[in-house]
Simulated assay, not measured.
Amino acid sequence: MHRLFVALRPPSDIRALLLDAMGGIANARWQDDEQLHLTLRYIGEVERPMAEDIATALDGVRAAPVTFRIAGVGRFDGGGRPGSAVWAGISPREPLAALHAKIDTALTRAGLEPERRAYLPHITLARLLRNAGSPDRFLADQAMLSSAPVTLDHFLLYESRLRSTGATYEAVARYRLDR
């Protein structure tokens, strides 16, 4: 089985900005440099033939390069816990939402179920485990986190491997934007 997702990899200066902002939440599982990405579409576990169909379908996605910047931070509610993750926000959202929709359409044509969740472009900074401290101070301190705009001309298909220390990600295919 292959556990896959489609994402953008922020350039090193954006990753450095995000890494510098991390900290201040007890027992949070902070992402490392290799884990920082902006998910365009989570796929999940698939068999090899479907993985090959996915790779072919993504090659047919046509879109312009995307420009975005880091814009603040937020958290996903963990259903009664302080929050299951904290993330860096992205602005503007519309170009990424349009690219997400094109990727979702291509993957649906390849045989996957369409994405049912609303798409919110973000970069996960930390996972908050049950014993994690409150993220409130971090959210207040980093509320104005921002970067200069960056333009990316490709997206990646990643394979994820779960480990006890967190997930590791390997880019298995690269797809150019601007075609």
Rank of each mutant, 00 (worst) to 15 (best):
H37E: 11
A16D: 15
R15F: 08
G78R: 02
Y169C: 06
A63H: 15
I90V: 13
E52H: 06
G78T: 13
A132I: 09
A51Q: 03
R3C: 06
A28C: 13
A16K: 14
L4G: 11
L145W: 08
I123M: 09
A143K: 13
F138M: 00
R176E: 15
S12G: 11
G79T: 09
L4K: 11
V6T: 14
I43E: 08
G72N: 10
P114N: 08
A140G: 10
I14N: 06
S134H: 06
M50V: 11
T165L: 03
M50G: 02
F5C: 10
A171I: 12
N131C: 05
S164Y: 07
A98R: 07
A140F: 05
T168E: 14
T56E: 10
D59V: 00
D33A: 09
L145I: 09
L4W: 12
Q31Y: 01
L99E: 05
M22R: 02
I54P: 10
R69I: 11
L125H: 01
N131H: 07
R69M: 12
A64H: 05
L18M: 14
A71P: 01
V86P: 03
L139P: 10
I103V: 13
V46T: 11
R48T: 03
L152H: 01
Y42D: 01
L40N: 04
I25A: 01
L152E: 04
T108C: 12
E34I: 00
E45A: 09
A106S: 15
G44F: 02
A171H: 11
I123P: 07
P92H: 05
A101P: 06
H37F: 03
L139Q: 03
A140N: 06
N27A: 12
V66E: 04
R81S: 14
L99P: 11
L99D: 10
R41E: 11
D20N: 12
T165Q: 05
R109Y: 08
P95Y: 05
I70S: 05
T124G: 00
R163H: 15
H154N: 09
P149L: 01
G80Q: 00
V172M: 10
M50P: 07
E94Y: 00
V6G: 05
V6E: 07
R93H: 13
A140S: 11
L156R: 06
R137T: 13
R15S: 13
R137W: 02
A28R: 05
F68Y: 15
P114V: 09
R69W: 06
N27S: 05
Q142D: 06
L129P: 14
S84D: 07
T124W: 03
A55H: 13
L96N: 08
L156N: 04
E113A: 15
L162H: 08
A126Q: 00
A57V: 13
L38G: 07
A173C: 07
F155Y: 12
H2G: 07
D53M: 05
T124I: 09
L145T: 06
H122T: 02
P121S: 03
I90Q: 04
P92D: 07
L36T: 06
R81I: 01
P135I: 01
P121Y: 01
L4C: 14
Y175Q: 01
R174Y: 13
A21V: 14
P135E: 04
Y42W: 06
D141E: 14
P49R: 04
R176F: 08
S147Q: 15
